[in-house]
Design a protein around this nucleic acid. Structure first.
Lengths: 220, 220
DNA sequence: CGTAAATTACTGACCGGTCAGTTATTAACA
DNA sequence: TGTTAATAACTGACCGGTCAGTAATTTACG
């Protein structure tokens, strides 16, 4: 019986170099759930199916693990977003829609959606990581939104607005929802219609953005 | 010289009545800055000007201190907001404006503004406290916003909208800003015009809410 | 009053458990 | 057999929580 179980469980054998990703994935889940300080490295290792000593073969310290979690976490997704700029060259409304809904599908709704909570919680404890995240993710994401807004204004589809402030207002409800899912939703989870929430937000923003008032119905 | 210093600094005197508040205030500041797990009770006590032993005269445990911080923190401010409902009986726009800007002045811009970050960070570690906060603060605040929206709709000032979703969209950018101030702002603080941010948000929301389009200028 | 006794707010050294980080050892390859 | 991935046992610093003792304040009493 014991031998059977050992055969079924992936035996501790020489693992390839996929280990770092398995460890950062486990660390991300636990850091998001419990916070950095309250997460024990034994847990992280166990969740990745190895021992704590193995973890130290790949990461110098707990803090180095945290940095790796953040660095490899979200940056790739940003590049995907920037590619949208070229794809939707002539339709700012669809561009904006794809950025926002794409953010939710690729980040907010996945395990990556925990990273905002993690960074908000730990930014002041790891200011250098926070600065990296701010430059590599936040500022880059805001720049993407500003570019989309500016294009819409240039094409006279949107009325002139402060694109910097508007970019922040565009993303705030999405981040807010991601934070919610990884905090209160776990214990106070009133079922909520995410699609309706996003549609309502997008509709509200368009109301304030559109240059002319020909647009009424928002069905899509 | 030493005697002078002792006279100037309010030396450790016996102040039974004020102690709990001094301790919870110190704990709030440190919990928000470093998180619950990373905050040492020695620090909390030192910040309140007492020793750790004294802290345990007033609170049974670290967790009890956390609960006290949350319970006494924000609940009173909610009642003030609810009073606005009666004050602005006939002007839903001003009512909404006062709720939002009042929230920022009374909570977001004060030390209480750290509580959202603290609760988001620790909700999953303290589900019972989170449930209390959800009921006593969040749901109550959302109900207040829903009431203000519903009144505007009833008076035909606002067009019919889903008041529940709209209430969440109304508060999200404010909470987002409060979270920002207590996380990234400390290390990546690009100077930001809070007043402009709030005005832009309010203006955007009104654009989407107003029943007729007579309203154009938003100066006030 | 004055002062001794009683009370109470407060202290800080200490204990025990926990956990990040280390090391001696084993097991799986070539 | 040598090399390396992996482990399990180990260490030591740290911190939540305790408690015997101290100082400030009040009360009792001559």
């Amino acid at each position: 019986m014991c031998a059977e179980a050992l055969r079924n469980a992936p035996r501790r054998r020489r693992r390839k170099e996929a280990r770092p990703q398995e460890l950062t994935a486990a660390a991300l889940a636990l850091f998001v759930e419990k916070g950095f300080a309250a997460t024990r490295l034994d847990e992280v290792a166990a969740r990745a199916g190895v021992s704590k000593g193995t973890l130290y073969l790949y990461f110098d310290s707990k803090e180095a693990l945290f940095e790796a979690v953040i660095r490899e976490g979200i940056v790739p997704a940003i590049a995907e977003g920037e590619a949208l700029l070229e794809h939707y060259g002539d339709d700012p409304v669809q561009l904006l829609r794809c950025i926002l809904f794409g953010w939710w599908e690729r980040i907010g709704a996945t395990e990556l959606g925990g990273i905002p909570k993690l960074m908000v919680s730990e930014a002041r404890n790891f200011p250098e990581v926070a600065r990296f995240y701010d430059e590599a993710v936040i500022q880059r994401g805001l720049a993407l939104l500003r570019a989309a807004l500016a294009r819409g204004i240039a094409l006279k589809v949107f009325r002139p607005v402060d694109v910097d402030t508007m970019a922040r207002l565009l993303i705030a409800p999405l981040v807010h929802l991601a934070l919610w899912r990884h905090s209160f939703a776990a214990c106070c989870g009133g079922t909520m219609d995410v699609g309706h929430y996003l549609e309502t937000h997008f509709d509200l923003v368009l109301h304030g953005l559109m240059a002319d008032r020909t647009r009424r119905g928002d069905s899509q």
